[in-house]
Design a protein around this nucleic acid. Structure first.
Lengths: 217, 217
DNA sequence: TTAGAACCGTACCGTACGGTACGCCTGCGT
DNA sequence: ACGCAGGCGTACCGTACGGTACGGTTCTAA
């Protein structure tokens, strides 16, 4: 019994009041994990449960709206694509690595991913699709043309830009995301954050070592 | 109110009847996702709920026992470590890549990981620890000495074997695991399975390109 | 044969939570 | 001034499920 559900394509338009509700929902999600109850959201947002159901249809609708709204907020900074010398290309790739890693280790990203995984464990893939679409896929969409431009400029060599992107993802993310999702205690956020820059450098170096056309490096 | 809970270190000894119960639990976990109910397990295993509580304490105990028992079962084939020429080293690394990828894309691994992630979303990290310990960490423990032997034999070059392992993990797994966990429909198991061999080769090539001492490759 | 342990099946209890109903208040348009 | 839509708070309902209790059955051992 969904009411005014917004299609994925439309820029979801939520009133400020609704956004306050979604914020409350996200906060609870981050705090209490997946123990999100309608009553808790209503109390936190100082609204009535009836309003929640009116606006979001059911619990799943509220969850979807929250994830979608929040995921879409994670817009990574655009990277300058104009100049295409080797230095600029490297800077761009490096920036992508930094953006990707920074987002992935954030508390919000972890929460959204956990929620989506939990959701996917119940024959529902909508949240997973949303998270994928706004996380890795968003990066991919923006990185791919740059990689291809780099290839056209004879700065990179690869057959499939898809494969190149996925290798990039692997070099950058490694086992960090899955360990954070699983709650690995030996991997504190602070610890990871401190090493971001070094990891970004290493991953970028490795990416260029594998795909760079310049073999002197 | 746990009763005879087994420590993580002990080889958990379950009677055949208990293993049948755990099998039923795992089956339900794979089928119905995380909707595992005590009643369902009891019915599936043709045992009484009282017995479940007697054996496993509570729902969490049953879940833990199931995950631990099943995760420990995923023992990957040992790799010959004796001869250390370049060819044997490469074969070993390749085999590790194959093992890792094969396990990760399996339905059971996905189910266990999803269960553990869901669990971790509720301030509980025990399942996550178990999964990590028996999955990636098990591989790591076995791969590391081989990498170090390779370095001693001047076949590999790296500063930190830990970093080398994690890069290996990234090159092999890339975005496959997270996409499967999120229920990405565009990534069917069959599709992935068909590409295992090619992916393993590529990942191994890339690993040696980054860490191999032989630069003619 | 009998005592008792283990265990099955089922009924039962309490609670948490999704979802609904309703009374009341507030603000806005006429 | 009045009516009404929107929304708050709360009470309420139904159900699903974790956990317990208990009677009956089978198996084992003395």
């Amino acid at each position: 019994m969904r009411v005014p559900m917004i299609s994925k394509i439309d820029e979801e338009v939520f009133t400020p009041r609704q956004q306050a509700v979604l914020t409350a929902a996200l906060d609870l999600l981050v705090e209490n994990g997946d123990g999100l109850t309608m009553t808790a959201v209503a109390r936190r947002a100082s609204c009535s449960k009836e309003t929640l159901y009116k606006w979001f249809g059911d619990r799943d609708g509220l969850l979807t709206a929250t994830v979608q709204w929040q995921a879409a907020k994670v817009r990574m900074p655009q990277v300058n694509r104009s100049s295409l010398n080797a230095k600029a290309l490297r800077a761009s790739v490096e920036q992508f690595a930094r953006d990707l890693l920074t987002v992935l280790i954030g508390e919000i990203s972890i929460t959204l991913n956990r929620t989506a995984v939990t959701h996917a464990a119940q024959e529902k893939d909508s949240l997973g699709a949303i998270v994928l679409e706004n996380g890795p896929m968003a990066i991919r969409r923006r990185l791919k043309p740059i990689l291809e431009a780099g290839r056209d400029a004879r700065l990179l060599r690869f057959d499939s830009s898809e494969d190149a992107y996925r290798t990039f993802f692997g070099l950058v993310v490694r086992d960090v995301q899955i360990r954070l999702l699983l709650g690995d205690k030996t991997l504190t956020q602070i610890n990871v954050e401190a090493n971001i820059e070094a990891d970004v450098q290493t991953a970028t170096d490795q990416f260029f070592a594998l795909y760079g056309a310049d073999k002197t490096q």
